[in-house]
């Protein structure tokens, strides 16, 4: 690949053995992951799983308690200017100075980025139908998100970091945001890192994925790899049973009577042999959607060692 940034390694973000504790709560537990250049990296997990904490570490807003975080090969805490000037960030609350007019906010943001593209910013203002003379305070939530997105995009950052970009927004603004992600990666070499719990969105645009649960990394790697790692298996039994059978690789069961459906980890041995041993017959085995994998894990009490593809 002909990268426009030849001086930088192919890994844009590199996190090694990251731990974070807030009081007694373990917010992140031994996280290791890498975000390759040019990828769309989705972070999924339930509320409180540690997605925002992870993103704040990437931005340098949180100092690693143990382990290392490097962005573009630099430490975001030691060199905030070097890292942040190449990043674009959209926070979940779309927080910005309320009293500024949209035009002032853009001018304020532009002052920090030497690479700010005024022409591109004007185009975006037009396509988002923003009025530069309106105060940020009086914008609707969707317009606010658009202003935030604009100020994260217009300096054409190498990495776009979005924290829950579309929670609570209408479909049109969501489409704007996803469109921005797609345009960003269409330009060669740019990377997008975003967290979300709208899984169909993640499934549409992400190619790499990290799944967090209670601060632990359940999976990290290519989206396809993740989907291949799970199977949704329906078993039919000779007689009705009132409790799901024990199956080593199953992480979540639902069903009743003769038919039970399990979410299974492909890596844990031969499913069919296990099913036969449990006294059932496999009547259907499909690739699950991300949604189903997510729900199965959210119901999970114990945790498995993470599946990581490097």
């Amino acid at each position: 690949m002909n990268s426009p940034y030849p001086d930088v390694a192919e890994q844009v973000v590199e996190i090694r053995d990251l731990d974070r504790r807030f009081g007694t709560k373990q917010a992140l537990d031994n996280i290791s992951l890498t975000v390759p250049r040019g990828s769309v990296f989705g972070i999924v997990g339930v509320n409180g799983a540690g997605k925002t904490t992870l993103i704040k570490h990437v931005l340098g807003l949180l100092r690693p308690q143990s382990g290392t975080v490097t962005v573009f090969g630099r430490d975001p805490v030691a060199d905030p200017v070097g890292v942040l000037s190449r990043l674009g960030y959209l926070s979940e609350q779309h927080e910005m100075p309320d009293w500024m007019r949209v035009g002032d906010l853009l001018a304020y943001t532009a002052a920090f980025y030497p690479k700010w593209d005024h022409h591109y910013a004007d185009t975006l203002v037009e396509s988002f139908q923003l009025d530069p003379n309106v105060k940020v305070r009086s914008l609707s939530k969707g317009q606010r998100a658009r202003v935030g997105l604009l100020s994260a995009l217009a300096h054409r950052p190498e990495v776009l970091v979005l924290d829950e970009p579309s929670s609570g927004l209408d479909p049109i603004v969501r489409r704007d945001i996803l469109g921005a992600i797609i345009r960003t990666i269409s330009e060669e070499g740019r990377t997008v890192m975003f967290s979300s719990h709208l899984l169909d969105e993640v499934e549409r645009v992400a190619d790499h994925i990290a799944m967090l649960h209670q601060g632990r990394l359940l999976f990290c790697g290519m989206l396809e790899g993740m989907k291949q790692a799970f199977r949704r298996v329906t078993l039919r039994f000779q007689e009705a049973i009132d409790r799901p059978p024990r199956l080593e690789s199953a992480i979540d069961w639902h069903g009743s009577g003769y038919e039970w459906t399990a979410m299974c980890r492909e890596s844990d041995g031969d499913l069919y042999a296990q099913a036969t041993m449990a006294g059932g017959e496999v009547v259907a085995a499909t690739v699950p959607s991300l949604d189903e994998i997510f729900v199965a894990h959210a119901a999970l009490e114990q945790t498995f060692p993470p599946i990581c593809e490097e």
């Binding site: 890292v83 942040l84 910005m96």
Partner: peptide, 17 residues
């Protein structure tokens, strides 16, 4: 960003300054 808020807001903390 609010006058009474004392912790650094992520908006300001993310300025490359």
């Amino acid at each position: 960003l609010q006058r009474e808020q004392i912790a650094m807001s992520p908006f300001l903390a993310c300025r490359p300054l």
